Computed example of a mutant assay.
Amino acid sequence: MNLRLLLISHAATAAQRAGRIPGAAADADPLDARGIAETAAARSKLGLPDDVASFVSPAACARETAQALGLTATTVEQSLADMNYGRWHGQKLVEIANEAPQDLAAWTSDPAAAPHGGESFSQLVSRVGQWLDTLDVAGTDNASLHPRNVVAVTHGPVLRAAIVHALGASPTVFSRIEIAPLSAVELRRSLRRGWTWWPASS
């Protein structure tokens, strides 16, 4: 292998625990004390490599998760931003279900649908896939023995999109992928095979 990428979803925010879609501003949903404590507890379980290049979503919750994980020299990457939820930013899912049930049903079943006026899941897969495919696979002189390690702290939908892209799967499977806060997804990329999905604990 030439590149080992560990994608980590940020810790739960108070808004997320309340069933609310993230706000539009980057600093809209910072971590609270509970989120920071949960991240600190997960740090040893994630087994982050020492020789790592790290990237982070511009959102406060992702940046604070990265910091609590001990990733200090992180590069803010716009391509790792959360999905654009359009006019649904900051709303509770239960409110959307009551006010616009058909729109919500379309959004959760059709990857091309964007009834909120923001980004569809298919568009998210394209955005995340473009970033994945720009990562340098030749990180060392002997990449097959010493793979380049990369960590990216981002959002659940971004991890789902990365899995879909890595597997070359149809975006229609997006609703079947569940990503909990502080989940880790490991992807590896080689010049011969391209992207593969590995158990994050391996």
Rank of each mutant, 00 (worst) to 15 (best):
L69E: 05
G19Y: 00
G117Y: 01
D51G: 08
A33V: 07
E99Y: 09
E64T: 05
V94G: 14
P111M: 01
A62F: 02
S122P: 08
T72N: 07
A62K: 00
D133W: 11
G129C: 11
I21P: 03
A73Y: 07
A114N: 08
T65A: 06
E77S: 12
E99V: 12
A25I: 07
Y85V: 03
A41L: 13
A112C: 15
P30N: 04
K45I: 08
E64H: 06
P111F: 00
S122I: 05
A112Q: 14
Q67Y: 08
L132W: 03
E77L: 13
A12W: 02
V56R: 03
L71R: 07
E77A: 14
K45R: 14
S120T: 10
S122Q: 05
A12F: 02
A26K: 11
Q91M: 13
D51R: 06
P58H: 04
E119W: 09
T13S: 05
E77H: 11
N98F: 11
R127C: 14
T65D: 04
D110L: 07
S54D: 06
T13I: 04
W107M: 06
N84Y: 10
A53T: 06
G90D: 05
L71D: 07
T13L: 04
A37D: 15
W131H: 03
V56D: 04
P111I: 01
